[in-house]
Write a protein that binds this DNA or RNA. Sequence first.
DNA 1: GATAGAAGATATGGAAACCATATAATACGA
DNA 2: TCGTATTATATGGTTTCCATATCTTCTATC
Lengths: 145, 145
Amino acid sequence: MVSISSIQDALRALTAQVSLLNQEVGGRLDLRPVDRDCLYLISQHGPMAPSALARLTGLHPATMTGVLDRLEKGGWIARERDPGDRRAVLIRPLGDRVPEIVSLYAGMTRALDGILDRYSPEERALILDFLTQVTDAAATAKDSL
Amino acid sequence: MVSISSIQDALRALTAQVSLLNQEVGGRLDLRPVDRDCLYLISQHGPMAPSALARLTGLHPATMTGVLDRLEKGGWIARERDPGDRRAVLIRPLGDRVPEIVSLYAGMTRALDGILDRYSPEERALILDFLTQVTDAAATAKDSL
DNA sequence: GATAGAAGATATGGAAACCATATAATACGA
DNA sequence: TCGTATTATATGGTTTCCATATCTTCTATC
């Protein structure tokens, strides 16, 4: 019998381990953890304003300026003027250095391919659904704090 | 059809979202991300030496001293002399403030309970197995960088 | 045993990051 | 049009991070 708490423990262990992997990858690219997190969010969400990113991550706006300075200097993003609001800035992710990231995650990607190969389509659907639900739950739990 | 890459994306989204939740929880407890990560590792692994923790996390030993200073000051851990090696220190996790953590994660725990309730024992076993495999893969991927 | 070198943790000082506040530019409502 | 709100960033002080040095203790070799 698989207890609920054992799955909770497994989830914690997974996120902790992935966090360590991310930290190692980030280190190779001169990306601090907070920079890497912001970069991921930008690349997923598309162009967005610094203030929105600061709200999302809970960082101070002044801190966000520093984060974006580093990301811009590293060639990860570009700052653009928002055509609709001349006060605002749009942060656009640049694709130039994406291959470096892909390369560093190649081992993990390959391992994951191997794991998923052994599951049936139904099982994969189950896994995807579970992951999605947990992600939503985490977002809700954070917002209701 | 559930593609492999969609599950990879879901995993990235999950870890990113959990990272945000952790960051929020840590903030409420005056724990910086690096302190929180170290505290988790200590609490899972049991008493361990600062040098071992520094190696595991990739932090500089001098940085680890600062992390442990903060964790000790906050009442999260205690430094003890290693009886077998008088140079060494053993970091012991203290349980005093664990209820605070549990309380902040209560929403997430409850949501996860609700999600898992809807799965059969076989499905739970599948999920647990998948999570365990991915965790191992992440550890291996990190070590082979 | 005695001794040289290694290993462990921490002190010290300089560099970097974080954050509160102030500032400048722009938007928007009365 | 004027006053206030919003957006991003500059500035200065505090905290954190890291390289090096230092002190203690262990261990291998003589």
